[in-house]
Design a protein around this nucleic acid. Structure first.
Lengths: 111, 111
DNA sequence: CCATAAGTACGATGGCTGTCAAACTTTGAT
DNA sequence: ATCAAAGTTTGACAGCCATCGTACTTATGG
């Protein structure tokens, strides 16, 4: 279905990575749960549904984290059936913040 | 003087960078005031006293920020007279967290 | 049509932390 | 000896945010 009862789009808008500041990105990635989500996506070559992550929080909290990550330009979300898929915005993000993702969720350096 | 009334050393101990986790580092660098301090040190080729930074907070708050940065292994502090000098632990930190400092306080990428 | 699966939205809550002012300490200069 | 400069420490406070449970929505399968 295209429109919903409350009028909101089912897939919320994604900001352009170029319009996002480093502060917002850091506030997103300082949370270990969110960093874990991004790390899983970074290490994977395919998109992952919200329920497909190994997160130690409730579903509603997980939704909150995905929201923050989306608003920070780190992930793109789209629906497949009832599942919401998450894709890492790799190249866009790397262009805007060079070296940041590798340094934070790449394998090199201390954890 | 070497020992103080309360017995504490005037220069508190500095942790080894190898004993610090990424989580602690990010919690230190997510604060814009602290990131500004580190950015000033990163762009400078000499150490800077606590009062020599351009920070928009009170002295006691600044002290708190320097404390956090020191505990996160980002700076080394030593006294010169009444002034407390701050040195960026550049190489040590780069070895432990490759690329992180340049990505966060280096000039490249979005602010 | 009904049940189930997968998320979302909303309110409430608890803990953390950045902030400041005030009092204090140490050092250096007069 | 005093005084000023530079930081520190402590306590208090306000705002934020991660978390959860509950209720709700949407889509799919029988």
């Amino acid at each position: 279905m295209r429109t919903r009862r409350d009028g909101r789009e089912r897939v919320p808008p994604h900001p352009e990575v170029g319009a996002i500041g480093l502060q917002q990105v850091l506030e997103a990635l300082v949370d270990p749960v969110r960093r874990g989500i991004v790390a899983e996506l970074y290490a994977s070559d395919r998109d992952i549904s919200c329920g497909g992550f190994d997160v130690p929080v409730s579903r509603s909290t997980a939704t909150h984290h995905f929201h923050v990550l989306r608003e920070a330009g780190l992930i793109r979300q789209y629906y497949v059936g009832t599942s919401r898929m998450n894709a890492l915005r790799r190249e866009e993000f790397e262009a805007a913040f060079p070296g940041l993702l590798p340094a934070l969720v790449g394998g090199r350096g201390r954890a």
